[in-house]
Structures are given as C-alpha cells and as structure tokens.
C-alpha cells in the first residue's frame, strides 16, 4: 500500500507530541493563536490576592506565562517547578500563573497551597486562555522583554524546568549554556550524557537527518538504559524510517513502557510493531486501550485504521478512521 513507514521522523514526532509524550522540545498545539516571533496578546487579570497583573507592566523583563488547571497534578508540579525559574533569574523574569478553571473550586486556596511567590491570576471568563488559544493545561509560554512570544512548553515533564530556563535565557539573550543547577549536578553522569545525545538526536530529526538522528538516539540509550524517553523516540523513529525495523524497535518501546506505563506514544508504537507482524487483533486491543486513556484519541484511531487497512480489514479500518474524523471535522 506504500503509505506505511512513510514520512520520516516528522510523523513520529508529531504523533508523540499529539499523544502527550514527555519531554519533547515543544508541543506545536499548546498555544494555537500565538506563534513564536509574534507579539504576545496583552491581558489584565485579577490575582488571587486581589491585585492585578498585566503583560505590559512587565516590559523589560522576560515573562513566563503558565496556564494552570487547579486540582490537576501536572499543573501543580509545573507551578512549583517555575519557582526554580523565578529564583534563578531574579528580577529579570516575571512568572505569572493563570488559573484557567477558577470556577471549579476554591482557586485562592489552591493557589496558596502551591506555596509560590509569583502572582497567580484568575482567568474567570477564560478570555486570556482563549486569546492565546490554549488547548491543555499546563501550557507555558515564554515572552521576551519586548513582549514578543518566544516559545511554548506544552504539558509538564521531568525536563520542564530546564526547558523553561533555557527559553528564558534565550528571551533575555543570555548564554544558553548555564552553570548546572543543584538538580542537574545530582543527576547521574550517565543520564546527563544520554540527555545530550537525545537533544542532538531531536535536532537531527527536526532536520530530517534520519540516520544520524537514529545513531544519536542509540547512543542515548547506550549511555543510560533507564532513559524511557530516549527508548520511546528511538522506537518510534525506527518504525517511521522503515517497517523492517520492527524487531529492533520493539525492545525499546517495551523499555519505554516499563519506565512510563501510561505512555500512549509507546503503546501506539508497540501496536504498530504488532500490526507489522500481522498480529492485528493484539495491536487493535492495545490501541483501543490507549484510546480510552487519552482525551485526544484521534491519532490512535488513525493508527488503528492503518493497522486494519494494512491487514486488509477495510470495513474495520473505515470504522476506526470514522472515529478519528468525527473528532476532527465536527
């Protein structure tokens, strides 16, 4: 059918991003209405302690704007991680938390429970949320001292604070290579090395230099075999490069799942392996399971359709594609 294993690494990355995989450089969908290089929309919001916070008041500083959902674990973690960013850059940065669901409970109590020192604002009418086109919480954007949107970080993952720190440094025009923070020094040497390899691999993948990206990702997992994210990307990229790589991809995807049993991307990858081997039913079961666990199952239904289509079960393929389309075309 000539469409499987087709479009190089871009699809793998897009897929991984869409299903909420950890640690990717950015989620292209975190802010739908703001692009890097564009002016960030102005806002004025009340804070939980009765003050007001605006974007323009922070001209001259880098601004970290983080959309948080009260009561959500990942938002809590992101909010706390941003304390570290605030401490690191002092008065060169203004961190602003925005609660996107102030009506879902006592937002003031939740914000106070975070124990953060930066302002936490309430987006009561979800106006700022709408203006930035935020899709999921947490979503964090970095704005430079001139009010220009620099980049976004979707979700919360282990590398979240590092990523935001790097973007703030970029926004301030400071050296991106930074002195290691206590967290980094505490990390085993092996993981640090592996992270460097993976960083390089992602850059190469972005430039569609498939073979080199694969080599760098292999070095990452060699340096640290417990690095789930590297296993996951390596597995997905191998599959994107060619279905013939299914055997090599499988152990990496399984290791990724061991490290992060909830990873939808790894499940999708594993299902593709099973599909390639003709184990259609097992693949389908895995995907149906993954679809239940994600709020955006379109990609998963799409993969399910691909697997049925590849197995010649066209009627079932139609059913799966329809489910994806229902959500995409409403």
């Amino acid at each position: 059918m000539g469409t499987r294993g087709h479009k190089g690494l871009a699809v793998g990355v897009a897929l991984a991003v869409a299903v909420g995989l950890g640690g990717l450089p950015r989620s292209a969908e975190a802010f739908r209405k703001v692009q890097p290089g564009q002016p960030a929309p102005e806002f004025a919001l009340k804070t939980v302690d009765g003050g007001e916070v605006t974007l323009s008041a922070h001209r001259g500083k880098a601004v970290v704007l983080s959309f948080l959902r009260q009561g959500q674990g990942r938002s809590t973690k992101a909010a706390k991680a941003l304390m570290e960013v605030a401490a690191r850059f002092g008065d060169r940065v203004a961190v602003v938390g925005v609660v996107v669901n102030p009506g879902d409970g006592d937002a003031k109590a939740w914000a106070e429970g975070l124990g953060v020192s930066y302002p936490v604002a309430l987006d009561t009418g979800q106006e700022v949320y709408g203006a930035y086109g935020v899709l999921v919480a947490p979503s964090t954007g970095v704005i430079d001292p001139d009010g220009v949107f620099v980049e976004e970080v979707g979700g919360y993952t282990a590398g979240f604070a590092d990523e935001v720190r790097r973007l703030v440094a970029q926004a301030l025009g400071e050296e991106v290579e930074e002195e290691p923070t206590p967290e980094e020094t505490a990390k085993p040497e092996a993981r640090k090395l592996a992270e460097r390899h993976l960083q390089k691999a992602k850059l190469l993948a972005k430039r569609k230099m498939t073979e080199k990206a694969l080599a760098a990702a292999r070095e990452a997992v060699q340096a640290d075999d417990t690095f789930g994210e590297a296993h996951e990307l390596l597995g997905l990229w191998l599959l994107d490069a060619s279905p013939d790589n299914a055997d090599e991809a499988e152990p990496h995807l399984r290791k990724a799942l061991e490290q992060n049993p909830r990873s939808t991307a790894a499940k999708v990858g594993l299902a593709r392996v099973l599909g390639i081997r003709g184990q259609t039913d097992e693949a389908a079961a895995l995907l149906e399971d993954a679809a239940r666990l994600t709020p955006k199952p379109e990609r998963i239904y799409y993969e399910l359709g691909r697997i049925y289509e590849g197995a010649g079960q066209y009627e079932k393929a139609v059913g799966a594609y329809r489910k994806a389309l229902e959500r995409l075309l409403r």
């Binding site: 799409y302 359709g305 289509e309 066209y314 009627e315 393929a317 139609v318 594609y321 389309l325 995409l328």
Partner: peptide, 19 residues
C-alpha cells in the same frame, strides 16, 4: 470498502494538515 478506507485515511491526514 477498500476504496472507502483509502478515502477516509486521506481525509484524516488532510484534516490534520488543514488544522
């Protein structure tokens, strides 16, 4: 059905692109 599956697959891919 085969033709249908192909058309639907393309529809999903294009919907993403358009988005």
């Amino acid at each position: 059905w085969e033709e249908a599956a192909g058309a639907f697959r393309r529809a999903v891919e294009l919907a993403w692109k358009a988005r």
